[in-house]
């Protein structure tokens, strides 16, 4: 999948302004990988995910699915290609009809696409139920009789029945208790192997994204700030925003093992109606300089396979001079102990 200068806008409710939910992003999704997308709420992750499965139309730019732009396809051909790209949402109830049995919900997408016949679909649905680790007796139950984790398994079984190549997972474990997230994440990993799947895994949870991703992209106000191999982005982030995001994660460690330095960003993500000029992170960036207000930083490959959009990103990871790092003039303060 290849995303080229993608832009998606929504009108505000009074139609007087437009929200640039996705504001020019370029990246590729590689076959068989798990691409993690991380960022604060309102940074455009969900909109991007919906665009990847063509649930929302871009105002400009393209999403190529295996080299094909779905915008030029029509009718049966469009439906066939679209089925290869599925999405699972955060809310376990979103896709489940409360009046339909679990099995009926699972086979619904295959039914709409006209795959097989009723008997074969049911057989396949029951098989998928087992694949996602649910007991057969769940088939005849209704959504309200299941826990959040079980419902999320049903949602996964549901998209698997159409044999997709790519699944976009939008905050799929966010609504679940930490105690059972592991079982769902393990399931995703197992299914990736059995069904040869590619994942785009959208989440705001750093520990989840760093656990499961091969590569990680970091979004801020509709743009990608950084994209690279997971280990690299987590251990040696290039962009000041990624650095701040990573250091804000609360660590369940005893006080003597906790890092003493922490970057505390001030303020919150600005309104996407009027993103800051130049670099859109500059109002919160601890190392912003005059240039950052004037020039939009280029999206460039700073390390091999590792992109970043910051004027000062360098291969060694230091975004600016040491003096700047301890300077408090920017939008944040960074305290030593």
């Amino acid at each position: 999948m290849s995303v080229q200068d993608l832009r998606i806008e929504f009108p505000t409710r009074d139609r007087s302004q437009t929200v640039k939910a996705v504001d020019g992003v370029d990246f590729e999704v590689l076959r068989g990988e798990t691409l993690g997308i991380i960022g604060e709420s309102g940074s455009g992750k969900t909109t991007l995910g919906r665009a990847l499965v063509s649930l929302v139309k871009p105002v400009s730019g393209r999403v190529l699915h295996g080299g094909t732009d779905l915008a030029i396809l029509r009718g049966r051909e469009l439906r066939r290609v679209r089925a290869d790209y599925q999405i699972v949402f955060q809310d376990p109830n979103a896709a489940l009809n409360p009046r339909m049995t679990i099995l009926d919900s699972i086979i619904e997408p295959a039914e709409i696409l006209g795959h097989g016949n009723d008997a074969s679909r049911r057989r396949d649905g029951l098989d998928m139920l087992a694949q996602v680790g649910l007991a057969l007796e769940v088939a005849g139950r209704y959504p309200h009789e299941l826990s959040g984790g079980q419902k999320q398994r049903v949602n996964i079984a549901r998209v698997l029945t159409v044999r997709p190549k790519v699944i976009v997972c939008d905050e799929v474990v966010a609504a679940l208790d930490v105690s059972i997230r592991g079982s769902i994440l393990n399931l995703f990993a197992d299914l990736q192997r059995s069904f040869d799947l590619t994942y785009v895994f959208i989440t705001h949870d750093i520990s989840v994204v760093s656990h499961i991703s091969d590569r990680i992209g970091v979004t801020y106000l509709g743009k990608l700030m950084e994209l690279g191999p997971a280990e690299d982005v987590i251990d040696r982030p290039l962009h000041p925003y990624s650095q701040a995001l990573l250091s804000a994660e609360p660590l369940p460690l005893p006080s003597n093992l906790r890092p003493t330095r922490r970057i505390i960003l001030q303020g919150e993500i600005p309104s996407p109606l009027a993103p800051p000029s130049g670099c859109r992170f500059r109002t919160r960036c601890p190392i912003a300089e005059a240039k950052c207000a004037e020039e939009v930083p280029q999206w460039r490959q700073v390390r091999n396979g590792h992109w970043a959009a910051c004027h000062f990103a360098r291969e060694d990871g230091h975004s600016a001079t040491g003096a700047n790092c301890n300077d408090q003039k920017g939008g944040s303060n960074e305290d030593a102990e």
Binding site: V178, S179, I180, R181, G182, S183, L185, N186, A189, D205, I206, S207, V208, S210, H211, I212, A230, E231, E249, L251, P252
Partner: peptide
């Protein structure tokens, strides 16, 4: 509860739950 936290397991390994 503690062991379930993904940050405490090796990357890409099986997660306890």
């Amino acid at each position: 509860l503690l062991r379930s936290l993904p940050g405490l397991s090796p990357r890409r390994g099986k997660l306890p739950f």
